[in-house]
Design a protein around this nucleic acid. Sequence first.
DNA 1: TCTGGGGTCCTAGGACCC
DNA 2: TCTGGGGTCCTAGGACCC
Length: 419
Amino acid sequence: MYALADCDNFFVSCERVFEPSLRLKPVLVLSNNDGCVIARSNEVKALGIKMGSPYFQIKDIVDRYNIRIFSSNFILYGDMSNRIIMTLHKFCNSVEKYSIDEAFLNLKDLNILDYNEFAQSIHKQCKKNVGLPISVGIAKTKTLAKLASRLCKYYPALNGSCVLKKTENIKTVLTKTKIEDIWGIGRKHTMMLHSFGIYSAYDFYIKDPTWIKKRMGITGLSTQNELKGIECIAFETSPAAKQQISVTRTFAAEIDNLEDLKEQTSLYVDKACSKLRAQHSLCTQVMVFILTNPFKQNTPCLYDAKKILFPVPTNSSLEINKNVADTVKEMFRPGVRYKRAGISLSHFVNDKNIQLDLFDKIDRNKHTNLMKTIDEINIKTGKNAIGIASESLKGFKMNRNHLSKHFTTDWNDIIELHC
DNA sequence: TCTGGGGTCCTAGGACCC
DNA sequence: TCTGGGGTCCTAGGACCC
């Protein structure tokens, strides 16, 4: 059996922990740049505000219903997420952190007599330890556990936990679940399935597997099997090293000069490379792209992307930044107003097996030592104390007008109690 | 005026080999 | 008229997730 513990309206709930008066009030969290809605309280959902709605389009409703707005505070959310994971570890050794707000637990080695009780105690402990509401679903496969935890959000009477075990119960639930609400069924497949008269998860459940394989490939077939209680999606205890590390940003204001653009991409390189080094990888490919505002009416979006190949695998911020800066210069078109840029590192190898180049001009040891020292200082200070000289000192060009404090990670922001 | 960011896996098709 | 067969590796793009 697997459990899925999924925090309810995670980002909103994190903000409410430090401002409890917002508990039954409408609250939403915006993406970077205060651009789009990325988390909604139940009250906001009830007002019909959709996930991903651009903020400027819903400002009227926000004002009318006095909705409280927050800019995204990922430092806070990341730390709250770690606290949840720590609590889950008290119940089970096998915890797979699936995303910032949810984790799977592999229950196979536990001797659980009453799954309902077990799920309830996780729910209660998370609330007590971290202050966050969490929905715990338990079932034979990950896909069914997902479904079980989802039920908690629709049926408050379940009080945050649900066990789906008996086939008859599963079939009843599937009949009442829309196919698009199943984990792994996205927009395109929903449209395709609808066109064949498949609307409920149960319609999908009883469909001929050969038909599903033909139209939806192996992943569609896996989803069907998982609904039948046949495990197809493996449990991963230790997180695999990333195969790709990207940093991309939309600018608050358009950038029309090369220097500002390079200052931004230097920041991306710095951020991406420290992640790369943290997982002990080197990369041999970096993709760089710049583009104009794709939403602008009557002006086509200009997009340029270029791939940089490194014959000797590297994780040196300096080496990568030099190449990225040169590439940005090549792609930059004077007079064009850029709105977004990004880089993506890929094709990784372990930093212990480097294939050297006979004609290498770079002193690799020097770079490695320098990077190691920079990382150590930045980890020790907890801030980006040292970076690349070409970086913008002002950081990302980003709007964040409704940012809460870093309550749990910065002494200056520690919560104050007034008695 | 104003529209996020970071990932994974699968598959078809091209390029190449003999 | 008529042009094989079997394989691997890589990549771009699609679909999905949060």
